[in-house]
Design a protein around this nucleic acid. Structure first.
Lengths: 80, 80
DNA sequence: ATAAATTATACCCAATTAGGTATAATACTC
DNA sequence: GAGTATTATACCTAATTGGGTATAATTTAT
């Protein structure tokens, strides 16, 4: 199995937003309608996820999955 | 089955980049190592796709999948 | 308009996901 | 440090994906 990466853009984003909102994983999962296990695997950095489910969560934070230049992505990671 | 959306950010991005590069679907699929059927479904706007596969393709264009504010996304769509 | 190339749709299958739940580990709070 | 809440890991199953290929439809070029 491919190795997980807890610090990928999506995992980081959801984890930090969730904490800012003072929500537990279970609460966020319930609110967004995804399974608790899915949210956990996402935050853990599982490599292969369904875009639809991810967007279900991102939508709650007013975001969505889009292609981004890698340079931007790298830049974004410098500040952490 | 959920309805497809040919004009979502990802489908549009890949389709237009591919054409700019003067590649056929088969060629791009071969180059990026994904199945031809996957690339077709992506460009057709299938709602549920594996992030890993998508990134495999985006990488070729120097991009990657990240959470983006919906407002930005909407803005982006105005110019087309 | 005709021929060739590209793209779209349909069929099958093996492999993997998401789901729930139970249990272990970790992080907080007092 | 004890007790509680939260998060992480493991097991099992149904449903869906991605893959290839064949065929139909559409687009492009001559």
């Amino acid at each position: 199995m491919k190795k997980w990466n807890r610090n990928n853009a999506i995992a980081d984003f959801v984890r930090s937003r969730r904490k800012n909102s003072k929500l537990t994983q279970i609460e966020l999962a319930d609110i967004t309608g995804v399974g608790i296990r899915f949210l956990r695997e996402l935050e853990q950095g599982k490599p292969n996820l369904m875009t639809d489910k991810i967007n279900q969560i991102l939508l709650f934070f007013g975001h969505t999955l889009t292609p981004t230049p890698i340079s931007d992505e790298a830049r974004r990671n410098l500040g952490k």
